[in-house]
Simulated scan of single mutants.
Amino acid sequence: MARKDKVPRGYIPILIGRGEDKEKILVHMEHLQQPCFLELLDLAMQEFGYDQKGILHIPCTTKVFHSIIDTIRKPKS
């Protein structure tokens, strides 16, 4: 069985959203270590537990998720 989407090296696919409003995005693995991203992972653990099957699902709005990623990407001054 062939995979439809090839994930670039250093990235992880994540499904974000609730209900019908879901979006699949690729997140660089460096972002997973940021404190604000760890809070999102904790939120996912609280809702789904540690044994999610398949793609990692984070239950927050896409707007909140993109805001967090933008904050992570901004250079620190």
Rank of each mutant, 00 (worst) to 15 (best):
Q33M: 10
G10P: 00
L40A: 00
R18N: 15
H28C: 13
R3N: 15
G17L: 08
T62I: 13
I69V: 14
Q46Y: 07
T61L: 07
M45W: 02
H66E: 12
I58E: 00
K76R: 14
R18H: 10
P8N: 09
L56F: 03
D70Y: 11
E39P: 02
S77M: 11
R18T: 12
G49E: 03
P8L: 07
I16E: 02
I14K: 00
D42Q: 08
C60M: 09
K76L: 14
K4N: 12
E20T: 12
R3H: 14
Q52M: 05
R18G: 12
I72S: 02
C60H: 04
H28V: 05
Q52S: 01
F37V: 08
I25S: 06
P13A: 09
K22P: 11
I58F: 04
L32D: 01
L15F: 08
E30F: 11
G49I: 02
I12S: 08
F37H: 00
D5E: 15
E47Y: 05
P35L: 03
L32V: 05
R3L: 09
K6A: 09
A44W: 00
I72N: 02
R73P: 11
K6N: 12
S77L: 11
E20Q: 12
H31D: 10
I72M: 04
V64T: 12
G17V: 13
G49M: 04
Y50N: 09
L56A: 02
T62D: 07
R18P: 07
K22T: 15
